[in-house]
Amino acid sequence: MKNIKLLFLATFSFILCCCKKDEIKLNQLVDSTVEVYKNELPDKIVFYRDKNNSFINDNSKYIFLDGKSLINKNDENFMLLHIGSDKENKNVNILSFKTGKQYVCIFNDTGKLISKNIIQWKSGESKPYYIYYEILKRKYPNYMNWDLFPIPQDSLK
């Protein structure tokens, strides 16, 4: 019984170490992407916190805020960070609602930059989109008739 407990503990420790290394590697990939586009991005980036980036920690270059905090901050310059991966590569996408640009970096499994690209994109209806829309509505109430395009209130929770 004691050997089984030791084996379980060793296996669990190994799994935690592997997960932590991957987590650190993803933090480094995000830092590298921010560095690649440092002339295009703000000095201090505010990201919307979602499930896809929940394991990335704040640092001196960027912070993460949830939807309520973004609305309270009332700043439409926040961005969305998406991290994806396939068998060989990991990609880091930084999406700006204000400029409509997507900053993409693709890295191989060792963390070497393979390609970078800036893509013009149009955001679709999503929670961060509605947060952005709500901030614009609060900052510029006379810009348009905001009642013509109502925001689903459950999307702001």
Rank of each mutant, 00 (worst) to 15 (best):
F64G: 11
P128C: 02
I63D: 14
K38D: 12
N53D: 05
K137E: 07
V46W: 11
Y130G: 00
I118N: 09
D31N: 14
N142D: 13
F149S: 08
I94L: 08
L26R: 13
D31E: 14
E88Q: 13
S69A: 14
Y140R: 09
P128K: 01
L7C: 07
Y62E: 10
N145K: 15
T99M: 06
K21G: 00
G124F: 01
P152G: 02
I118R: 09
I4D: 13
Q120F: 03
K139L: 15
E88W: 13
L29H: 04
M144N: 02
I45M: 14
I135Y: 00
C18G: 05
N3D: 15
F97I: 01
I45N: 09
Y132V: 01
D66V: 10
I131E: 00
K61W: 13
T110C: 11
S115I: 02
L113Q: 10
M1E: 08
K157P: 00
K87S: 14
I4E: 12
K44S: 15
S69R: 11
L16Y: 01
Q153D: 03
K61M: 15
V104S: 09
D31M: 04
P150C: 07
N145P: 08
Q28K: 13
V104P: 00
I24M: 06
S13K: 07
E76A: 03
Q28G: 05
D75E: 11
K61E: 15
G100Q: 10
L6Y: 07
D31K: 14
K122I: 08
G100V: 06
S69F: 02
K90Q: 06
P152K: 00
V36E: 06
D58R: 15
S123Y: 03
K38G: 02
N72C: 03
L81E: 03
K116L: 02
D22F: 04
F12N: 12
K137N: 12
Y143P: 00
P141A: 04
N142E: 11
I83F: 06
K73D: 06
L29K: 03
L29V: 03
E134G: 01
N142S: 09
G124L: 12
F149K: 08
M144L: 12
E35N: 12
P141L: 04
Y37S: 12
I15W: 12
N108K: 04
D86Y: 08
K90R: 09
F149M: 04
S60E: 15
N77F: 07
M144R: 13
V92G: 03
D109H: 14
I24N: 14
S13Q: 10
D22H: 08
Y37F: 15
I119Y: 05
P152V: 09
F55T: 15
L7Y: 03
Y130E: 00
D147V: 01
G124I: 01
K5P: 01
